[in-house]
């Protein structure tokens, strides 16, 4: 398979997939190394841009995906007049921000930071599959723990959790900061795992 054909195959796969495609998936399909696959995706990205096409390839949720250019949004919306997905509420975004950085995290912890009850918000986020229940915290009451999902990354166009801007250190509470870092690390593992599942389901 010559290189040109490989690149066209990458384009076709990204075009067809509704979910982000992982680089190792592309590499396996084309029987090439991950570095080569990445180079191909990079070239495809540039090709689309330099040919001034309406499509772009971007990195999201640990994979690559093809989508339309943002500046075309008004025309696309006009053409399809689809129900424009409603934005999340401010409360939902606050809760998501806390979960993203502190995961796995309990409802009480979220509420104590926000200063308001958040049951309803969490329910909605669960419904939208932006968060999931990842388990229970050991201790009194064994409260549920919440994590973000791969859909969270997709929704906000994030490559991975570590791509979130780092929380500014507020004052000298270093211990709290350190804790954040380890929590995020754990969460990353969880996310990679579930992204794997996602990609598997595409291949099925």
């Amino acid at each position: 398979m010559d290189r040109d054909l490989q690149k066209r195959t990458v384009e076709a796969l990204l075009f067809l997939s509704e979910e982000p495609v992982k680089i190792d998936k592309l590499a396996t399909v084309l029987s090439i190394s991950i570095d080569e696959a990445e180079a191909l995706v990079g070239e495809l990205k540039n090709d689309l841009a330099s040919a001034r096409r309406g499509l772009q390839v971007f990195e999201v949720a640990g994979g690559y995906q093809m989508g339309t250019l943002p500046e075309l949004a008004p025309y696309i919306e006009k053409a399809f007049s689809e129900d424009v997905s409603s934005n999340l509420s401010t409360a939902a975004l606050e809760a998501l921000a806390i979960i993203a950085y502190k995961q796995p995290v309990t409802r009480i912890e979220i509420e104590s930071i926000r200063g308001v009850r958040s049951e309803h918000v969490l329910e909605n986020l669960l419904k939208r599959k932006l968060i999931k229940i990842s388990g229970r915290k050991e201790g009194p009451g064994r409260p549920l723990l919440y994590n973000t999902t791969p859909d969270f990354l997709k929704y906000f166009g994030l490559k991975e959790l570590s791509n979130l801007p780092s929380l500014e250190p507020g004052g000298d509470n270093l211990t709290a900061q350190e804790k954040d870092v380890t929590d995020t690390d754990n969460a990353e593992e969880v996310i990679t795992e579930s992204t794997d599942n996602n990609i598997n389901s595409i291949s099925n």
Partner: peptide, 13 residues
Amino acid sequence: LRQQEEEQQKIYL
């Protein structure tokens, strides 16, 4: 996150 949301919603998949 709100900014990211707005940006991402302009991209159709």
